[in-house]
């Protein structure tokens, strides 16, 4: 037998096995039951609350946590690159602490322990406290990304700026930071996607009805409404999350590819 014929036969065999498995699964599954559980009748009434309350709040919390987290991360990254040893230590300790803890633990701390211990409530109730927790965690992760970005700017850039008489602050603001951000746009977009998904952790701390994010609203529909007792709202939420995150992860892939070509 010719080599090419052999290869074609082998590939054909593999496809046949795959098709057989798919057919068997399709026959074995009780589709009516699956549909009743995953996509029950009456799901139409869920969409409004899932989107208008859930997606909206998820977006708001993500954007707030990202913006504040980024500011915190920049501060930490600069501290980590500081000449002052104590600053470097503090930044390192902070980053290690909040990267080492599960985000959920940090969120629970901020929502329940910190308000009692320090007699201080972050604005926005428990949801706001949860967002503060997300900021603390996101700041730690993005700080490492930013530090890498700052260090990736060629040394000659700072030298050129300094040789023109620009001071350290001007050099940082006008020359180093803008270039660092360009370098880290792909990983930063990635962090943004992770943050979108992490907002679902906020569903654990409870929030007023109008402040619930997507996962929390979804949980309401598990026990109430036309689709109560089925996983329909979970399927809807999964779909909504993917509609938001998939374009973003594709964007990251595209940005990375473009950056590689530019090099």
């Amino acid at each position: 037998m010719k080599r090419s014929t052999k290869r074609r036969l082998r590939q054909g065999g593999l496809y046949a096995v795959l098709a057989a498995i798919v057919v068997l699964l399709a026959l074995a599954v009780d589709w009516a039951n699956v549909r009743a559980n995953f996509w029950a009748d009456g799901l139409g009434s869920n969409w409004h609350d899932l989107i208008v309350t859930g997606v909206k709040n998820t977006a708001i919390y993500t954007i707030i946590a990202f913006a504040l987290g980024l500011a915190l991360a920049l501060l930490l990254a600069l501290m980590k690159l500081s000449d002052v040893v104590a600053y470097r230590w503090i930044a390192t300790a902070y980053i290690e602490l909040f990267r080492g803890l599960p985000a959920l633990i940090t969120i629970l701390f901020m929502a329940f322990a910190v308000p009692i211990a320090f007699q201080w409530r972050p604005p926005g109730g428990t949801a706001g406290a949860g967002v503060v927790g997300l900021v603390l965690v996101a700041g730690a992760y993005m700080a490492e990304t930013l530090r890498a970005g700052l260090q990736a700017v060629p040394k000659g850039q700072a030298e050129a700026a300094r040789s023109l008489g620009m001071g350290p602050a001007h050099t940082l603001i006008h020359i180093i930071i803008p270039q660092a951000f360009r370098i880290i746009i792909p990983p930063l977009t990635n962090e943004f996607v992770l943050l979108i998904k992490d907002t679902s952790l906020l569903s654990i701390v409870g929030a007023a009805v109008g402040q619930r994010e997507l996962t929390n609203v979804t949980r309401d529909f598990l026990s109430s409404g036309d689709t109560a007792g089925t996983a329909t709202s979970l399927m809807q939420a999964a779909l909504l999350y993917l509609i938001i995150t998939l374009p973003l992860t594709r964007l990251v892939a595209w940005l990375e590819k473009r950056q590689q070509r530019a090099r």
């Binding site: 060629p154 000659g156 850039q157 030298e159 050129a160 040789s163 023109l164 020359i175 270039q179 360009r182």
Partner: peptide
Amino acid sequence: MVFQQFNLFPH
């Protein structure tokens, strides 16, 4: 100062 690698600000 003029550098071997120019060091213009690329952004």
